[in-house]
Each structure stands twice: as structure tokens, then as C-alpha cells.
Design a protein around this nucleic acid. Structure first.
Length: 115
DNA sequence: TCAGTGACTGACC
DNA sequence: GGGTCAGCCACTG
């Protein structure tokens, strides 16, 4: 039984869905929120599997420097960038400009216990 | 079964 | 300050 793994993936999808419009986050941030900061690759794998899931704004998930490492996995090579720009995010050479400005931390946004 | 790969990250040199 | 290495875990051949 690997239901726990499924749960991990589901959690990833749930967090990604919570990303507000015009915001982005990183694989590590999600992984850290899920208590698996060292398993950021699993988040990336979850995104790969996210194609099977509806309403997963995977384009809002980039690596820690705001680089669109996963754009190649989208239908078009520019689709990911187009989607981000459509939300008001500036993307240049596959990298988000002022990434930290748009960065959305699930650990802070979803955890209402701390401020 | 074993080994290689990957939408990552942090540490080290 | 930039390049390299190792760790992480699941999937594929």
C-alpha cells in the first residue's frame, strides 16, 4: 500500500490549487510545507503527474530562483510564460522578474496560527 | 533486481 | 561568487 504517497501528491495538488492569482511559489516551499523539504524532487514529480489532475496551475510553481524549469512540460514552449504574463507576472528568458515579489509561501499563507 | 533519470535544494569548494 | 556534489524518493528500462 502506498496510500501515503498518494496522500503526499494530493497535498501537493491541494497547495498548488491554493496559490492565488498572480502569485508563484517554489517546489521547495511546497515540499517544506508538507514536511519533506529534502524531497523537493517529489514535488516536481507530482507536478509531472499533475497533468492528470484538473485545475492544477503548475505554471505557478517554479524552482527556487524563479526559473521556469518545467516549461518544457507544457503543451507549448511558451505556454507557461504566457500564462504567467497573463497574470501580470513578468517573465524574461524563462525566469520570473522580481520573483521574491510574487513569491507565495504556503507555510505562511495556509498556516493561520502564525503571523 | 539494478541502475539511471528527474518540473529541486542546500552545502561545499 | 559561480560551479560541483550529494541527498532525496519514485518511476522507467
Amino acid at each position: 500500500m502506498k496510500t501515503e504517497n498518494q496522500h503526499f501528491f494530493q497535498k501537493v495538488y491541494q497547495v498548488v490549487r491554493q496559490i492565488p492569482y498572480g502569485r508563484v511559489t517554489s517546489y521547495g516551499a511546497i515540499a517544506k510545507y508538507l514536511g519533506a523539504a529534502r524531497s523537493a524532487r517529489m514535488v516536481g514529480w507530482a507536478m509531472n503527474n499533475a497533468h492528470s489532475m484538473p485545475d492544477i496551475p503548475a505554471h505557478r510553481v517554479v524552482n527556487r530562483v524563479g526559473l521556469l524549469t518545467g516549461k518544457h512540460h507544457f503543451s507549448g514552449t511558451n505556454l507557461m510564460q504566457q500564462l504567467l504574463e497573463n497574470e501580470g507576472i513578468i517573465v524574461e528568458e524563462d525566469q520570473i522578474i522580481a520573483f521574491e515579489k510574487y513569491f507565495w509561501d504556503p507555510a505562511k499563507a495556509l498556516d493561520q496560527h502564525r503571523e
